[in-house]
Structure formats: structure tokens, C-alpha cells
């Protein structure tokens, strides 16, 4: 079960592959040699207690933070060696990120928030708004298009955040406790929306959670303890799980 000692090669067929990640913040070691594969189109839950390094792992995999040691490979590129501009482009085009709360820009309406990644990529305003509107519709928040984040409920703003993460048609979505600030029913709506869309568009999802009910939406689960993977394997048979759902 344990992969702490071995350092397998980057998994074949993995979309994103992390090997031997180490990251410290001051004297706190957040990651101590974590390895993980996220496969094309799979939904992977990463679970663990508070302070086990879950969020740091997500930050390293999505290119938000550079690890002190170890490699993150995506599409044949090593993220650690990429310039900041290229990482921004990856976050804009290939990745989507959803946090527990607060990732929406308070000055922008729901529609503008969702259109933002498109505008940053140089899409025309009209087209960006149209596509953003479609995504709001899909997540059942079309009616909130003109509201700013301050005027929406937690569940609504999380669904807007999901729309923003998915609007560019990313290959991977990184979700850090996306339902952490929501009640059960709102959380269920957010998770159902995320899982359905991800399956439809074969988007891979890395789902960070401490909640077993949320982890159950995933195809497989990897447990983190003290900054390393301790249960579920790095590479595991994620592919079958994907096929099971079709």
C-alpha cells in the first residue's frame, strides 16, 4: 500500500504526475516526498487531516506554488522549470481552480467573473459574455448573472466559481474543499454539478476534502498523512474507475 519509500517513474498515461514533492513554509514541512498521478478524465479525492499537506499538494500540482524538491510533469513539461508567464497561461487555459470560498473578484458581477479567464485570454467581450452566460445557465445561476459575490449565497457563489473554473474547457480542475463552507444540501448541488460536467467533458478533477461523503464522489481516493501519501497508491487503477462510470 505505502509508496513512501519507492519513487516510481512518472506514470504512463497520467495527465499530471508528481514525484517526491517536498515543500516547506519556514520551519513547517508541508510536503515530505509526496507522489501522485492524476489520470486523464478521472476524479481523484485526496483526503487527510488538517495540516497533512493536502492544500500544498494541490498548489504544487496546479503550478500555483513551486515545490522545493521533486517534479510535477504535465503534458511532457516540468512545471518547476516553466516561467511565470507560461504557468499563468496554463492556469488560464488548461487548469481550473476552485477554493473553499473567496476566489471570486468582489468587484465583478457573476457574469464578468466567469468571463474573466476568457477576457484575459483575449476573447472578444461579446463572445466571452455569451459563453459565460451558458455556463451560468448550466449551473443554475443564470438568474444571479448581474449580482456581485457579496449578494449571492455561499452555494451560488461556489457554483459561479465552478463555472469560472470550467469556462475555458480545462483538462484538469483543482478543487480545494469546494463544499467546505456550505451546508449539506448546497454542497450536494455543487458536487453533483462538478461531477456531471467533469464526466461529460472528460475533465480530470483533483478533489481535496476531509469529508468522506464528498470523497465518495470520486473514482478513487488517496490518503495523505504528514506530507506523504500513505493510503491508496500513487498510480492505482484509476482508469477502470473511469470506465465504470463511462
Amino acid at each position: 500500500m505505502s509508496t513512501r519509500d519507492e519513487q516510481p517513474l512518472p506514470g504512463a498515461g497520467a495527465l499530471i504526475s508528481a514525484r517526491g514533492l517536498r515543500k516547506s513554509y519556514g520551519r513547517t514541512e508541508a510536503l515530505r516526498g509526496a507522489s501522485l498521478d492524476l489520470h486523464e478524465g478521472e476524479i481523484l479525492a485526496v483526503t487527510g487531516a488538517s495540516g497533512s499537506g493536502k492544500s500544498t499538494l494541490l498548489h504544487c500540482l496546479s503550478g500555483i506554488v513551486r515545490p522545493d524538491e521533486g517534479t510535477v510533469t504535465y503534458g511532457g513539461e516540468e512545471l518547476g522549470g516553466l516561467p511565470e508567464g507560461r504557468l499563468s497561461e496554463l492556469r488560464r487555459r488548461d487548469f481550473g481552480v476552485v477554493f473553499q470560498f473567496g476566489q471570486l473578484i468582489p468587484e465583478l458581477t457573476a457574469l464578468d467573473n466567469v468571463a474573466l479567464p476568457l477576457l484575459l485570454a483575449g476573447t472578444r467581450r461579446g463572445e466571452a459574455n455569451e459563453r459565460a452566460g451558458e455556463w451560468l445557465e448550466r449551473f443554475g445561476v443564470r438568474g444571479q448573472a448581474d449580482l456581485r459575490p457579496g449578494g449571492m449565497s455561499g452555494g451560488q457563489s461556489q457554483r459561479v466559481a465552478l463555472a469560472r473554473a470550467l469556462v475555458t474547457g480545462p483538462r484538469a480542475v483543482f478543487a480545494d474543499e469546494p463544499t467546505g463552507a456550505l451546508d449539506t444540501l448546497a454542497g450536494e448541488q455543487v458536487m453533483t454539478a462538478l461531477v456531471h460536467t467533469a464526466r461529460e467533458s472528460a475533465t480530470a478533477v483533483l478533489l481535496i476534502t476531509h469529508d468522506a461523503q464528498v470523497a465518495a464522489y470520486a473514482d478513487r481516493e488517496v490518503g495523505l498523512r504528514d506530507g506523504a501519501v500513505h493510503s491508496g497508491s500513487a498510480q492505482a487503477a484509476g482508469q477502470e474507475a473511469v470506465r465504470r462510470e463511462g
Binding site: 508567464g85 499563468s88 492556469r91 471570486l104 473578484i105 468587484e107 479567464p117 484575459l120 475555458t168
Partner: peptide, 12 residues
Amino acid sequence: RTAGMRLAGASP
């Protein structure tokens, strides 16, 4: 806000 924009993919 800037951090949020960077997260959405804005380059420095």
C-alpha cells in the same frame, strides 16, 4: 483581488 485574478490565469 490581484491574487484572485492571478488564480484565474492573469499573468504578472
